[in-house]
């Protein structure tokens, strides 16, 4: 019967990912990262196969996914721009920078531009307090972001 299930392929793939991490102690977070890396987000459809593989409940998986802001339930744009909103960066003008970014992209926090290029996310401290305001594009952290550098980053990202 499983072959008739449109989500069977997804479930099988997730089971494989779970099996790859089965040797770890506390494998849930690594599995969630791996699944999100592969699928772009953690939709509700991924919960059941992960719960099944780890023999935990669907509620528990949901609780973990929803606890961490880095786990997404909707796909993000091609690039994610995170702007730090912690105290040190705020003192260096991060709030104004964020407003500029919002206006430039035409989105609010967590929004994705119409062309799907950039998703804007707040973040609370990137550990770059000496170089605020700080931002992060995908995996790359950037310090001393002013309006000009922001524009460069956004152009580079295709926004």
């Amino acid at each position: 019967m499983r072959a008739l299930d449109p989500e069977a392929g997804l479930a099988d793939r997730i089971s494989e990912i779970c099996a790859d991490h089965a040797h770890l102690e506390g494998p849930l977070l690594p599995i969630l990262h791996a699944v999100q890396d592969e699928l772009g987000s953690l939709s509700e459809a991924v919960i059941a196969p992960i719960a099944e593989a780890l023999n935990i409940s669907r509620a528990e998986v949901h609780g973990v996914i929803s606890f961490y802001h880095d786990f997404r339930t909707e796909p993000a744009g091609r690039h994610i721009l995170k702007i730090c909103r912690a105290e040190a960066c705020q003192a260096m003008g991060a709030t104004a920078l964020a407003e500029t970014a919002k206006a430039r992209l035409g989105v609010d926090w967590h929004g994705t531009t119409g062309n799907g290029a950039v998703t804007l996310e707040p973040v609370y401290c990137l550990g770059l307090c000496a170089c605020g305001p700080a931002a992060m594009v995908d995996d790359r952290v950037v310090g001393r972001v002013d309006a000009g550098r922001l524009e460069d980053l956004l152009v580079e990202a295709g926004a």
Binding site: A59, H62, G63, S66, F67
Partner: peptide, 29 residues
């Protein structure tokens, strides 16, 4: 021992959830 409930979200957004996001109490475990 059913593990049907969880705390969803974090901080001020935390709330009790039956099952996953789209579940209600009846649809959960």
């Amino acid at each position: 021992g059913t593990f049907a409930l969880t705390i969803e979200g974090s901080g001020f957004d935390s709330r009790v959830s039956f099952g996953a996001r789209s579940d209600d109490a009846l649809a959960s475990d």
